[in-house]
Design a protein around this nucleic acid. Structure first.
Length: 580
RNA sequence: CGGGACGUAGCGCAGCCCGGUUUAGCGCGCCUGGUUUGGGACCAGGAGGUCGUGGGUUCAAAUCCCACCGUCCCGACCA
């Protein structure tokens, strides 16, 4: 029997919040004795925290095995040459840890290369495919800025899996299997997730989706519709804002003085409707200047612009560059009469609009009656604006919300980038040599835990669900050190509960009732079983549900059955999660 | 990598400006004894510190100066 007496256990709870902990999940993980920091972005998991990790990993294993995944154990120490072959030593830059006193070795931040390496060794025929390989292992990334405890660390645990397929249809299937497994994993872990389309970034490949958990501690900003389920990273999100109407009459272009006007708001203050204003910005993309036109106070989305331009480097022009390229300073810049010719990218919302006001490229002057069709050469129109809260959903027109979110999972259709780079080819049924088609799928294990706590806590502490709680029941014996009947009943229940498979943390310390209650609420096991002189007087023991605070009084003999029944109920009731 | 802040006992902090009664303090925690006993008890006694590290200024440095290290925050970056 596992013995878990609080008096002997290493569960260093903290009364006060350590100063460095910002995020709530971080504070609670420290206070409840789940983790301790070793260095910036590097954490030890203490016994309680490690039990949670193991439970989450077990759920992941079950679901990965259920889609035919095979568990591996890949080394964290990698020869650098496989990373050079895929060009990722460059791409990763400082994020990749290099071993200093042993040239040629790096610490793996992920394992596409290793997978492709082994696939090359042994996957030779279409008959060997498909495969799903996975592992749950530490990953090392030299994050420039570790943050929020375990949410962004330099070492963390990832479930990473890799699909190997002979055909693109096969890849689609492997990808869908993962998408379904991921939903089950997150649901079983008590997380409300939403899925957003994402750019595959430095990973390469065609499609990717992120599994997000809404939380103020999140590092991603997402746009979500609570009506229809539309969700997207703000970097790609759209909304159904109305376009700028083309007015029936186009007046002749006219320059007019606007002394002191520095912003769209200044123009609006002079009686010009915001929707007729065209805001011009100058950006430098891969060394070349270009102009961006947005409607009124719309905000440029640099990620979208970068994607449209396929630019590697993108930055706003400096005030000096503005002067040099346009002859004016910010506030008086516009697409008409540019001294330096440059491409103009306009937001979709301004498509073919007329009767616009924009800067004249002379400080203190603007043009009015601008007709983008008549007066300008627009290189192209694209969606480059940032969606704002309250704008109508592109699918159902309900108001959109903007939320912060934690990325707990990410799935990619990689394609053949890695197999080609590392020479992982197979022969298809026609004897033709082809690169293996890969997918890669990650889950941040610590992030599941932190995200869960972000969503499941109150002012007293964590509120676990049975599936991932470090233990199921917190048995509190009040006054054990002096009340023999309390001790006897508590010991008996402790024994019985473990015997019937209920993981029980037994607080047998000679501490005051208050201390024990506070620790129990902080640690947050789903059920508290209280044995005290008072409860025995009234004929038994007391059961308290941590989350709801509901209390039940039961005779000692019925305690075990009541515990099992309540645990069952707390596991079944999806009070903590709704599947989208 | 740019900007900012911090580093004094296990945790939270004061002292630093204006150097010297400081034997470096307070709360929590810890140890001993007693009292208490269902929501972080009380009384008494006690242990615990190279004041991040190194150098400099000075008769004298936790306190002033320089460098380094560490940690946190904002930004950049981020499969």
């Amino acid at each position: 029997m596992t013995s878990m007496r609080f008096s002997r256990a290493f569960i260093p709870t903290l009364r006060e919040t350590p100063a460095e902990a910002q995020a709530l999940s971080h504070q609670l993980m420290l206070r409840a004795g789940l983790i301790r920091q070793l260095a910036a972005g590097v954490y030890s998991f203490l016994p309680l925290g490690w039990r949670v990790m193991q439970k989450v990993m077990r759920i992941i294993r079950e679901e990965m095995d259920a889609i035919g995944g095979q568990e591996f154990h890949f080394p964290a120490l990698n020869p650098i040459d496989i990373w050079q072959q895929t060009g990722r030593v460059e791409a990763m830059g400082d994020v990749l840890f290099h071993i200093k006193n042993r040239e040629g070795l790096v610490l793996a931040p992920t394992h596409e290369e290793v997978v492709a390496f082994h696939a090359r060794q042994h996957v030779k025929s279409y008959k060997d495919l498909p495969q799903i390989w996975y592992q749950i292992q530490p990953k090392f990334r030299n994050e420039p800025r570790p943050r929020f405890g375990v949410l962004r660390g330099r070492q963390f645990t990832m479930k990473d899996s890799y699909s190997l397929d002979a055909t693109w249809e096969g890849l689609d299937e492997s990808y869908e299997k993962h998408a379904r497994a991921y939903r089950r994993i997150f649901r079983r872990c008590g997380l409300r997730v939403f899925v957003v389309g994402a750019s595959s970034g430095a990973m390469g490949g065609s499609a990717s989706q992120e599994f997000m958990v809404e939380s103020p501690a999140g590092e991603d900003t997402c746009v979500v519709c609570s009506q229809c389920g539309y969700a997207a990273n703000v970097e790609v999100a759209r909304s159904a804002v109305e376009p700028t109407a083309r007015l029936p009459e186009s007046h002749p272009l006219e320059r007019f003085p606007t002394p002191g006007v520095r912003s769209i708001d200044d123009l609006v203050a002079r009686g010009i409707p915001e929707e007729r204003c065209a805001k011009a910005l100058v950006y430098i993309a891969d060394g070349q200047p270009l102009m961006v036109l947005l409607r009124g106070n719309d905000e440029l989305n640099e990620a979208k612009l970068q994607a449209v331009l396929q630019a590697v480097w993108l930055r706003p022009a400096t005030p000096e560059e503005l002067q040099r390229f346009t002859g004016a300073s910010a506030g008086s810049i516009g697409p008409i009469g540019l001294p330096t010719p440059m491409p103009v990218i306009a937001d979709e919302r301004l498509r073919d609009a007329n009767e616009l006001v924009s800067g004249a490229n002379v400080d203190g002057y603007h043009f009015r009656h601008i007709d983008l069709q008549r007066d300008c050469r627009i290189e192209h129109y694209a969606d480059i604006r940032t969606v704002q809260a309250g704008e109508p959903c592109p699918q159902c027109t309900a108001p959109l919300r903007i939320v912060r979110a934690i990325e707990v999972g990410h799935i990619f259709k990689l394609g053949t980038k890695y197999s080609e780079a590392l020479g992982a080819f197979f022969l298809d049924e026609h004897g033709q040599e082809r690169p293996i088609i890969m997918g890669s799928y990650g889950i941040g294990v610590e992030r599941i835990i932190a995200a869960f706590i972000e969503q499941n806590h109150d002012e007293h502490g964590i509120c676990w669900i049975p599936a991932i709680a470090p233990f199921h029941v917190h048995l509190l014996a009040l006054g054990v050190e002096r009340e023999e009947p309390v001790r006897r009943v508590a010991e008996q229940l402790y024994q019985e509960l473990w015997d019937s498979g209920v993981e029980t943390l037994y607080d047998d310390r000679p501490e005051s009732a208050g201390v024990k209650f506070k620790d129990a609420d902080l640690i947050g096991l789903p059920l508290q079983l209280i044995v005290s002189p008072r409860s025995l007087h009234s004929g038994g023991v007391e059961l308290k549900e941590r989350r709801s605070g509901k209390r039940h009084h039961v005779p000692v003999e019925e305690a075990r059955a009541a515990v099992r029944q309540l645990l069952h109920q707390l596991s079944e009731e999806p009070q903590w999660a709704t599947l989208p």
